[in-house]
Each structure stands twice: as C-alpha cells, then as structure tokens.
Simulated assay, not measured.
Amino acid sequence: MRKILGVASLIMSTCVVHAEQLNEQEQISPYSANVTFASQYISRGFQQTWGKPALQIGLDYANPNGLFIGTWASNVSSNYLRDASVEWDFYAGYIKTFDKFSAGMTVFYYYYPGAESTPETGSTSYNYGEIVPQIGYGPFTLKYFITYTPDYAGYNSNTMGGLTGKRSRGSSYLDLNFTQPINESWTFGAHYGYERIKNFSESNFQDVKAELIKDLGDGWSTGLAYTKAWDKNSYYKKYSNGETGAPISNPIDSTFTVSVKKVF
C-alpha cells in the first residue's frame, strides 16, 4: 500500500515558536524573528528531513491584547513528500492568560510548494489547514488540532485506496505538553500526541517527546530532544513517498535531535 503523509508542525516541535510563549515574553517590540539550526526536523514524531539537518526561520507579531500572527518555514526532504523541499506555515490567533490559566484559538495553514502525490493517484496536494483550540494551567498545555480543509496532508481515497470518494476533513491531533523550568537557565519539556485520521484509522499514530533546553543568553538557546512515534499495525515501518524506486525507511523510529536557536 502506498503510504502518503505530510505533517507539519508548526507548533509541535521545538522548532516552532508557540503563541503562548510569545505572549509571556517581555518584548519591547511586538515583532520578533527566530532562526533555528537543527540536526533534523521532527514534527509529531516524524522525521521530515529524512535524518538530514534543517534550517528554520520564523517571523511573528504578538499584540499585548493577545492577538498574534506569524509565519514559519523549514526545509523538508523529497524522500518524505514527493517533490517537496520546503514546508511553509501561516498562522493567526488569540490567547489570553488569567493568572495560571490560559485559553486561546489558532488557525494554521501548511503549504508545501510544488509537492504532490504521484499522478497515478490524482496528483493530490499535501497542503492542509487546522484550527486549534487550546487551554493551559501552570506547566500544562492542551491543544486539539482539527483539519478544516478537504484532506489532512493528502490522505484520501486516491492516495490511500479503499472506497472511492473518501476524504480526511475532520482529522484531529491531541497535543498535551508539560514545560517546567529546572533553574534559571535549564528547562525540561515533555509531550504526548495522538493523531486520528478520519476514514483511514489504520494510519492513526501516537508520539512522545522529552527535551532539555538551555538558555544561553542574548536570545540564544540550545536543545536536545528525544522523539518517538508508533502506530497500531506498523503501518509506517516501511514508508516511502510513493514514487517508483523511492527510498524506504521508518520515519517514526526513536531518535535524538540537537538544535541551536536565536530569537531576535
């Protein structure tokens, strides 16, 4: 069976600036930018650069009243998504903090320029969008990503087989995060996620992450993250982008990622 998957992550990996983090930072200007160099790009447990290094850039505007808008981009591998080289994300939303509580909503759109599934499967685009309500208390944040576009990351009857006419609108991703400072310079983070793909439950998956982040001062930080994903029936164990002769690998196997980030 041809396995097609595209996922981003705008905000699920160490590489994306979370809206609530922007809201909590004391900034002279509402505008900020970030650049990350990482040993690989992991999103929702999937190795989107096929184990190769990643360069990621983001731009954000965060109003003190809680409104924010931003964009973020990373290189990706064509071995992961056919003809893909870049993931480009756009997002906007609102978040409000009340003492230890927070609540908000974000809308995302993930764009993969030029990337499509094989012509034999109808040249399905990998582009997709999600709406994300979220709540937080203290070190915990819970987000629920819901796909509003016709397909989630190219999942449909053409790419997945089965009954004709099936789409994956309404797919969801449960994202639970724990972030706790250890001291003035070190922070520990933990994550659990569960992806439910509508009409294609055989491709559902779960993922976990544990990370340590060190603040180096002057906007610099470095991180070490362990990630792993798994599915019920080893669906992704022999993954390819669907192209004839494409490399086969296990993109959800456990792995470590090292990153260095600068926030301007």
Score class of each variant (00 low, 15 high):
P139R: 12
Y137P: 08
H18R: 15
H18S: 14
G161T: 01
H18I: 08
G66Q: 02
K262H: 15
T149W: 08
P139Q: 13
F145C: 00
A153M: 10
I248A: 01
W88K: 01
Y148L: 12
T147L: 04
K100H: 02
T159M: 00
E120N: 14
E211C: 05
K3T: 13
N177I: 05
G66H: 05
G161W: 09
Y80G: 09
E120V: 13
A103H: 05
R169I: 04
E195V: 13
S32T: 10
Y173T: 13
G93Q: 05
R196H: 14
I248C: 06
A84N: 11
P251A: 06
A73H: 02
N177G: 11
T149Q: 11
A54D: 04
S254T: 10
I135E: 03
V107Y: 13
F200C: 08
K228T: 05
S117K: 11
G70N: 09
A62H: 13
F188W: 07
E211T: 11
Y80A: 02
L5G: 02
V86Y: 14
G245R: 00
T244A: 14
K209H: 09
A54Q: 08
G45E: 04
N177M: 11
L174D: 09
L67Y: 14
L10W: 06
Q47S: 15
Y41T: 02
E184C: 09
I42G: 12
V86F: 11
G162R: 00
N250G: 01
F46T: 04
K228S: 08
Q40F: 08
I11W: 13
Y236G: 03
K52R: 15
S234Y: 07
E20Q: 11
F101V: 02
Y91E: 08
L174M: 02
I197W: 00
G217T: 14
I146C: 04
E116V: 13
N183Y: 07
Y31D: 03
N250C: 03
M160K: 15
L142G: 08
G223W: 01
A225C: 03
D231N: 12
G154P: 11
V208Q: 13
S254F: 09
D253P: 04
N79D: 15
W50C: 12
